[in-house]
Write a protein that binds this DNA or RNA. Sequence first.
DNA 1: ACCGGTTCTTAAGATACCTTAAGTTTTTTC
DNA 2: GAAAAAACTTAAGGTATCTTAAGAACCGGT
Lengths: 196, 196
Amino acid sequence: MDNTQQHIQLLINHINQDVSLDEYAINKLSSFLVFNELNKKEFLIKPGETANSMNFIVQGCMRSYYLDENAQEHTLQLGIEEWWINDLYSYLSRKQSRMYVQALEKTLLIQLPRLELEKLYIEVPEISHFFRIKIQNAYVAVQERVIDSMSDDAYERYDNFRKAYRDIEQRVPQYIIASYLGVTPEFLSYLRKKHS
Amino acid sequence: MDNTQQHIQLLINHINQDVSLDEYAINKLSSFLVFNELNKKEFLIKPGETANSMNFIVQGCMRSYYLDENAQEHTLQLGIEEWWINDLYSYLSRKQSRMYVQALEKTLLIQLPRLELEKLYIEVPEISHFFRIKIQNAYVAVQERVIDSMSDDAYERYDNFRKAYRDIEQRVPQYIIASYLGVTPEFLSYLRKKHS
DNA sequence: ACCGGTTCTTAAGATACCTTAAGTTTTTTC
DNA sequence: GAAAAAACTTAAGGTATCTTAAGAACCGGT
């Protein structure tokens, strides 16, 4: 089995955790996968572009963030191997993104273009079901983020972050974690010292 | 046309803004609508319960909120006539809610029970399409709320709130708006004075 | 192995927001 | 329409977080 086949198998196994794909479904799906390799700091999506694929991380680490009026970065989502990364808002609404989606390490993606994916939904209901679950989970995750961001003790938020992103914490710079938590890097540094 | 028919018409017209319902769809839909009248301060959903219907506000005003560890209220969503109100997280995931969904005025709802609605999805794809759009919009709204809650100038958040909820602002007490913005009622009062 | 850039820390002074408490206004109830 | 309850305001003192600035530690490339 070559590398490409291994990567596709990773995706299939991932999907099979939620639904059951038969031979036919796997072949159909495999036929339109697109591989995309990004270097560190390279962008998958920039403001003004429209997200038109679902993106599965085979290897590497990515984040989505946006810039506020003061050019401050706000990280919304992080992802590593076997996570999906996107601007789901842009993908679903087909409107222009206001986000950057960026590789934090050299990253290998499998992409599923929207138009072909939507055709596949009709032929393979399991795939439709799978992404319905994913979108539902994304909704839940954003809702939890709202709730979390309201608990205004920053250290508690940092603690929650570490629980939710256990495997990711060590892989991303702290200024990005700070921008995820909504505090300055200086203050995060202060908190870490205080609680150590 | 009696009151009940008028209320149903309001719902039909609302749905027809996004999709096109034919006679058959309207009849099917009408056959399982449930009316529910709530008094001021009465709860539609409480923590531990599971949301099992979509809820359309015919007349009145509602909100969803949760209590944090310090028993502080955090308002997540507000709604008036022709809005939908729910704990969508609980509805979609079929898990227990952690929310209160409460009437802020005497409120009349039309409810669409989940099980019957899902059967209808198969017979009437327009209805399925309509709720897909609604859930998509809900995702976008929550995402905007995350982004908004990161702009940490509270007056700016208040300003955004007033734009997003223009018709609602006058109808709900300010301590609820404060709990939506994540500030104390005292501080909101201070901000209002300062900027007036 | 070094150099230049990136990331992290420390600390002092400033500001936004909170807590408490009390008084005032508005709304609800009987 | 009076009494009770709920909501809003004001102000003083406290705390969390920010800003700025500077130095320290940790890279990544040649």
